[in-house]
Amino acid sequence: MKTILYARVSTADQNLSHQRTHAEQAGFKIDEVIADHGVSGVSTKLSERTEGKRLFDMLRKGDTLVVRWVDRLGRNYEDVTETIRHFMKKGVVIRTVINNMTFDGATDDPIQKAVRDALISFMAATAQANAEATKAAQRAGIDANMGNDEKYRGKKPSYDRATFTAVIDMLATGQGASAIAKATALTRQTVLRIRDDQAGAEAALAKWGM
């Protein structure tokens, strides 16, 4: 039985190594890392990605698939829910680094199944909603750039995409705001703003084309 970390690195600013580091800090013992680079989670299904499609052949009953969050599998509701259910039927356990969620098909209890499936649906819907919000913010950022309307975009973020991702991952492993601020060279107040409004922080990056 193996534990495989799947990572989707969609932009040049995102870092693959820290995804494994934070998974290991969260207690996962990773046997292998499978990663796709520069791939959209909105328009490209996991089964259509160069590395992602390998998971469908290599994962066996008893294996564990680890992802940072369900949005690494995809940012489309139908795709994410179908993918998770496919792996559960094969006897694969899916676990997330953020929130330490576990999905498997071991239970026969109808109530537990209903709760599990509802949670999968909610997380998949959230992944798509966040993707759509980010896309809208990016569109607004492009329009603002064209009109040179910096007042519309607001204050430029003091963090870049890589730092934002690092903060989210460290928060997921239970690290405090002060420790994260020291590690990322951000102020504690900035870390707290990201923690309390992740969607807003990501939207701010998108508005500035970051």
Rank of each mutant, 00 (worst) to 15 (best):
V167Y: 06
Q112M: 15
K182H: 10
R153C: 02
P110S: 09
K135P: 00
T11F: 06
V167N: 05
I142H: 06
R95H: 02
D169S: 03
T126D: 14
A166E: 13
S158P: 01
A133F: 11
T126A: 15
F164W: 14
N148K: 10
S17K: 15
A204M: 08
A114D: 12
D71Q: 06
L65N: 11
G41E: 04
I194M: 04
A179S: 15
R95A: 07
A129Q: 10
G105M: 06
T126F: 15
S40M: 09
A183M: 11
M210C: 00
I34R: 14
A118M: 13
G154C: 03
R139V: 00
Y77F: 14
F122K: 06
D149A: 11
A129Y: 07
G147V: 00
T3L: 12
G176I: 03
I84P: 02
G38F: 07
I194W: 05
Q189D: 03
R68K: 10
K155T: 02
L59R: 12
V33Y: 08
T173M: 01
V42K: 14
A144C: 03
G74F: 13
A133I: 04
M88N: 10
A125F: 11
I194H: 05
N76M: 06
S43G: 15
T107A: 15
I111H: 14
A185S: 11
Q25K: 14
L192A: 11
A140C: 01
V93T: 15
S47G: 00
L119S: 13
R75A: 01
A183D: 10
A177M: 04
K89Q: 10
S47F: 12
V33K: 05
A162N: 04
Q19H: 05
V67E: 11
I180K: 02
T184S: 14
I142E: 09
K61C: 05
M1W: 10
F164V: 01
D104Q: 10
A23V: 00
I84H: 08
D143G: 00
A203M: 05
A206G: 07
N76W: 09
S47E: 12
M1T: 09
S10Q: 05
E150I: 09
A129T: 01
T190V: 08
V70H: 07
V70D: 06
E82N: 09
F28R: 02
D109M: 10
G27P: 03
L205S: 02
Y77H: 12
S121D: 13
E132H: 10
L73W: 14
